[in-house]
Structures are given as C-alpha cells and as structure tokens.
C-alpha cells in the first residue's frame, strides 16, 4: 500500500485527538471523584488533598457489593437462556428450514428495530399481573424475550453457512435431530455463540429502562439502573456521585479490557448483522 508520510502524520494526529476526546470525560470523572465530598469542583483541577476515601464511601453507601451480585444474578438469568433459545431457533430457521420458517424468521427480523419504549407500558402491567414486579425476574424474563430477535438472527446467520452435507453425514450415522444439534452443530457454533454471549452480557448489564420501570429497589436492578438510583440519591453530592459512577464502571471496563479483542470483533459484527 502506498501511503505518503504526510498522510501518516495527519492520520496519527487525528487519531490521538479523537482518543483524547474519548478519554477526557473519564479523566474528568476521576479527578472530580477525588475532591472533598459535598464541594463543587470546577473543571479539571487536581485537588490539593485527593480524597481516596470517596471511593470507599461510595462503595459503602451505594451497597456496591449487593449491586454487583444483583447484576451478576440478572446476567446469569438472561444470558445462558437467551443463548440456548436463540441457538435452537437459529438452528431451526437456518438449518432445519421447516415449513413456515420464512415468515417465522421475518417476524423475528422485524423485532430487531423495536425500541424498548414501544412496549414498556403494557410490559409493566403484564409483569405486575404476573406478580413479578420488584423482583429480578421482572428484568430477566422480558429481556430474554427482547433479545430473541437479535439472538435468533445472529445464530441463524451462522447456521445457514453450515453445509447440509454435514447433517446428512451425521444422520446416516444414525443421529437424531437433537443429537445432531447438540453434538455436531453447537460445538461448531462456539465462535458465534461466544460473541453473542459477550454482546448479551453487555446489553443486560447496561440495561436502564426496564430496570427503572420494573424494579424500584436499586439492589435488585442492573448496574445501569442502580447508577440511575445512585444519581437520584447522591446527585446532590458531585464528588461522591462521580466516585460511585466510576466504581459502577469498573466491572464492565475490566471485562472489556480482558476480552477486548473478542469484544471489538463482536460489537462490529453485531452491528453489521443487526
């Protein structure tokens, strides 16, 4: 590839600039979190006496341990089931291609663009009538439903690329459809599955609307929902709010940094297919 030196330089400068703009809000959040609680620090000034204790205070007053556990429980409820259901349906629509699969699949595809606000009102009454309001199930069950379009479309995209001959061979060996699915296709679908898992984890963890509407107790919400409540409670104390917000970000950021390559790949593919 032929690239001029000047172009390279301009590119680098531009990239650094863009990265700076991306990172500055995080730094500002961090610096503000170190100011004495209850003050209104201005701009990006390093405090004379950094209050590292703010993080401990925020951790305690926000019951961060409980929040982490709650979010983990919700993720544990949403992600495995969504993966299983999505994979089974993706296998059916993409590989078994039973009669009616086109229209069935189309109904799922149409759900891809549905804004959650479109169904939140009846969802509230439905969850209430099920007696699940203010429980984690109020977030888990609707989220599984709401994730179905994407999961199904995603997994179907994988299964349509699987050659029919593969199944033919397995069937001749006497495998039933379930064995065919579980023994042959699921292992082959692992890369697609793990990317989907990452996306679902992220979307569950960051889900806000369902959390604030369906669950009042912040300790039973997702991290994002808890952060909303945290703002309601500590919005009056900027440094503490910033410390809390940072703490709430840490788990996702940590997971992201560990799995960053998968993450980036998953998110990019996720947008293309979605």
């Amino acid at each position: 590839m032929i690239v001029g030196r000047r172009e390279t330089l301009v590119g680098r400068v531009l990239l650094v600039l863009l990265m700076a703009v991306t990172v500055v809000p995080f730094i500002s959040l961090f610096v503000t979190a170190l100011h004495p609680a209850g003050t209104y620090p201005s701009g990006l000034s390093w405090p004379d006496d950094p209050q590292w204790g703010n993080f401990a205070d925020a951790f305690r007053s926000a019951h961060m341990g409980e929040l982490l556990l709650s979010s983990c429980l919700i993720v544990a409820g949403v992600v495995p089931l969504s993966l299983l259901f999505g994979t089974m349906a993706g296998f059916a629509f993409g590989h078994l291609r039973m009669p009616g699969h086109r229209i069935g699949f189309l109904v799922f595809v149409l759900g891809l663009t549905l804004p959650f606000e479109g169904i939140i009102t009846p969802l509230y009454y439905q969850v209430r009538d099920l007696g699940l309001l203010n429980t984690r199930w109020a977030i888990i069950l609707p989220l599984i439903g709401l994730f179905m379009p994407f999961s199904v479309v995603w997994m179907r995209a994988h299964f349509v690329t699987m050659p029919d001959d593969l199944s033919e061979a397995a069937r001749i060996d006497g495998a039933g459809t379930w064995q065919l699915f579980w023994r042959v296709h699921v292992p082959l679908a692992m890369p697609a599955l793990s990317s989907l898992g990452i996306l679902l984890f992220l979307w569950t963890w960051n889900q806000f609307l369902l959390a604030i509407v369906l669950v009042d107790d912040p300790a039973k919400r997702t991290m994002a929902g808890a952060l909303g409540a945290f703002q309601g409670q500590w919005g009056t104390d900027i440094p503490l709010l910033c410390a809390g917000a940072l703490l709430i970000l840490v788990p996702t950021l940590a997971v992201f940094l560990v799995f960053q390559r998968r993450f980036v790949a998953a998110l990019l593919q996720g947008s293309i297919k979605g």
Binding site: P99, G100, R102, I103, G104, V107
Partner: peptide
C-alpha cells in the same frame, strides 16, 4: 404452499 402456509400461521398467531 410457500405463500399460503406462512400466511395462515401468521394470521392464527
């Protein structure tokens, strides 16, 4: 068959 059956399914649903 391809057109009708899905339609019927959809309507039933």
């Amino acid at each position: 068959g391809l057109i009708n059956r899905p339609l019927i399914t959809a309507v039933t649903l």
